[in-house]
Structures are given as structure tokens and as C-alpha cells.
Design a protein around this nucleic acid. Structure first.
Lengths: 236, 236
DNA sequence: AGAATAGTGTCTCTAAGACAGTATGAT
DNA sequence: ATCATACTGTCTTAGAGACACTATTCT
């Protein structure tokens, strides 16, 4: 094989699908692209992301974490690969490959005001499998795939716990599942299932409200989501 | 944002994890790298793959299909993204990103003799989550992730059907599942489950053998794997 | 007392696991 | 008849779904 010429190298970027829940709706973080006319898709909304910086980024995940920090000021508790998209035509500047990550962040608390172009970052509600706005590049298709991945994974993991503040009630957790999945869940089955794992720890405190107080829980292990049993489950 | 200099572009490749089953063992296709001393990892076994050809390949999946065809002469019935790996150090030639695909091909029938360096392509048995040989680059880690993905997906899809010839018996299908998962399955539950979907179609023929003939089936829809019901399954 | 929300009891239903039993071919 | 393998009957168990019921706070 001959040496690889630089013109054989595609443009390489990272994009992020960052989800949260606000006002009982799944939301995704988008940024508005620069208005400079030499840029593709000027002023069009897009997934946050950007080109890999070979001097700054040790690997793709570091690059994604850096972009996330620059755009939102948060450190993602969970960053998951969604896939990569690469073709000759997805970017008018030439053959390009993007690697896409997915992150869930807690509702409300995040100030988007950190970066320079932060005024042009905002949450968009998911309607079905998309946002109302038409997105730059193939980001509409990518977002669709990320939502599908998220919904699928929520069926059998504790991922939605990352959408909540450190302490929460079972009802709040159930609401996160329901918002992401777009359907209601049965209360008793949900609670039995959640408590059957070692996912949650009671904290010795109740959430007071307008009625009966609710037990507060926190994640027993903040790092990675728990996987629930599924079909063909191994014998023990 | 300033224009992207070519030296900001990582090397970009595609690698394939191609699995089959032979002699009751899951096998992965590996190729031996060139012995030329200026190449990294000379004569070391590696996943088949190579750099994207910006003039030849329309997109990453076409590139993967081309590599697969060049190495094995088969057209993959199912090509699935596993993920991408990119870092400054995974290739000694510089910052590189590889996108990894997974394919299952039917046992036995495939002649590996197609390409030029075909003598250096062979099936390696999977032992646990790896092959005995030490692989080039980070291909050991990538293979481990691909096997994990495969095993996980087999728990709830009809993927192993792609490991079989067009017509097969339920016992043969069950054996494919058992080999991939590395554990035995209960016969009655397996058959009930398979026949409960519209995955299979009876063909009006039996497989004759040393004992009672077995009903032959084929896939009702050859295109994509079927997904089985799982926890939190939607109400109908 | 009544509203509101937290949390439980319990029945049904489905599908997996276990495993013994029956069916149908070759020899 | 015996062996080998295909295929089924049926009991048990685990967990989801349904849904009514009880519990604890507030006003």
C-alpha cells in the first residue's frame, strides 16, 4: 500500500446529541451556525460539534467532551457513541465523516450562556422523531437515529436517571421514562422493577409537597446505566 | 471558523468484523498485514479494512462493502455499524479514525481465495472475547466490542439466521444461537419463540437425516433481522 | 372532611425454563 | 426392535399489566 496522501483524508468532525427534559417534553440542544456566507448552511440550526483538533484532542471522546463543555459548560455524566456518518456529499466542503455522541443531562440547571456564540444555543422540543426546524447537513437524519437509539435503550436501561438531579422520587423517575418513551408506564410494575435492581439507594429524607411526602432515592452507582433483564436471560 | 487545513484531517479507514460459524465455533475473518517494513505491524493479523478512497467510495458503507467484497467475494446480507475509534495514538502514522462494521455470513460456502493477498486471509476461532493471536493496532479491543455487540444483539434479534444457508431447520437455527451466545438454550422455549414471530416460513420440504426428518424453514423477509419482544414492551 | 399524591395487594396473563413424553425416520 | 433426532404437553415460575385499595400529608 502506498503512503496516504493528505488529500485522501476526509474532513473529520464530532457532533453531539444532547438531550434533556423540560416542561414534560424531550428537548435537544441545537446551535445556530455562523452567518458568514462562505460557511455552509449560514444561520441554520445544527447539532453542536465541530472538527477534530489534532493538536488538542487525544481521542474522539475527548473531542466530544470538549465540544460539550464549550457549548454548555456541563460535564456529561454519560457519553455514548451513536455511530458515524460519512459520505462524499454530506458536507459541501468535501468528503466528510462525523462521529456522533449522545448525552443526557439533568433538567433545568444548565446555563447555556458559557461560550462566545452561546446566544445561538437553545433547547428545541422533540416532536415525534425530529424538531420543527430544518437542520443543517444531514443532522436531521442523525437526530432521528439518536432519538431511536435513546428510546430503544431506555426500554432496558436506567439511562433516564441521568435526566434527574442527584436525589429524586420514583414518581419523578417514572415521568422521565414516560417523556422519553412517549407513553405512560404502569406504576406498580415500574416501581417493582426499579427496586428489584441495585440501581437505587434510599436517602434518609422525604420530598415534601402538597400531599403525602415521597421517599427520595439516589443512584447507587453514578457511573454507568444499569441493564435490566431481557428475553433469553441467562440462567443463574 | 477558519478554513480547514489538510493537516487537520485524521487518517480515515473502515474495518470489518466478519463472523461466521464453523465446527461449532464462532469465527472471525482476519487478514495478515503486508510484510513491508515501512508499514506498521508488518505480518501481524488484523481486521480486514483499509483507508477510505475518496474518489471511489460514495460513503462509508459503500467503502465497507467494497472492502468486504475484495477480501471475501461475498455480498453481506447485513452490515451494521459497531462504532468508531479515533485517537492520536492508535496508528503510528498519526491521528486516525476508523469506522467499524459487523457482518454475519453463512457458514462454509465462502471461498476466501478471491483477492490478491487472499492466502493471508483466514478464519480464526473466537475464544471467550478474543482470538488467540495478538492483533495489530487496537483491533483486539475493537473485536472485543464487536463480539459484545453481537452477543447482546443476538439476545433479542434474529441475526443468527444470517449465519445459515437459505433453508434450515429449527435445530440448526438454535445451534447458531447457542454458538454465538456460548450457552445452551431450552428447546421448547426457543421453538415457541421463533414460531411466534413472522420471521420464518415453512418450505414444503423436509431435511432428511439419520433419523426423523425435520421441517425446513426459510426467512420470511431476508432483509433485516426481526426484533423480539423485550421488557417494557409496548401494549398493543 | 376532602383533595392530592405516595405507595401496596392481588389477580390475570404471557412467556421462559424444565423436563418428560411422543413421533418418525434409518439401521 | 433399537437408536437417533424431531417435536409436543404440561407444570412451574417470574414478571408485566391492570386496577382497586390503603397511607399520609395538606388545606
Amino acid at each position: 500500500m502506498s503512503p496516504i496522501a493528505v488529500f485522501d483524508r476526509p474532513l473529520t468532525s464530532v457532533d453531539l446529541t444532547i438531550f434533556s427534559v423540560a416542561r414534560e417534553t424531550l428537548q435537544v440542544l441545537l446551535v445556530r451556525r455562523s452567518g458568514a456566507p462562505e460557511e455552509p448552511f449560514p444561520e441554520v440550526w445544527a447539532l453542536p460539534g465541530g472538527f477534530v483538533d489534532l493538536r488538542q484532542d487525544a481521542d474522539l471522546e475527548h473531542c466530544a467532551l470538549r465540544k460539550l463543555r464549550e457549548k454548555t459548560g456541563v460535564v456529561a455524566p454519560d457519553l455514548e457513541k451513536v455511530g458515524s456518518w460519512g459520505s462524499a456529499v454530506r458536507d459541501p466542503r468535501g468528503w466528510s465523516v462525523t462521529t456522533v455522541y449522545l448525552a443526557l443531562i439533568a433538567a433545568g440547571g444548565t446555563a447555556l450562556a458559557a461560550g462566545g456564540n452561546a446566544a445561538d444555543a437553545r433547547w428545541w422540543p422533540i416532536e415525534g422523531s425530529r424538531v420543527r426546524e430544518r437542520l443543517a447537513f444531514d443532522h436531521g437524519e442523525i437526530l432521528k437515529a439518536a432519538i431511536a437509539r435513546l428510546r430503544n435503550k431506555v426500554e432496558y436501561t436506567s439511562l433516564p436517571a441521568f435526566l434527574l438531579t442527584p436525589e429524586f422520587t420514583l414518581t419523578e423517575l417514572q415521568q422521565m421514562y414516560e417523556v422519553v418513551l412517549g407513553r405512560t408506564l404502569e406504576k406498580k410494575a415500574f416501581r417493582t422493577r426499579m427496586l428489584a435492581t441495585d440501581l437505587l439507594e434510599e436517602v434518609p429524607r422525604m420530598k415534601e409537597g402538597r400531599s403525602r411526602p415521597a421517599q427520595l432515592y439516589r443512584l447507587a452507582n453514578r457511573r454507568r446505566p444499569v441493564f435490566f433483564a431481557r428475553t433469553f436471560s441467562p440462567r443463574d
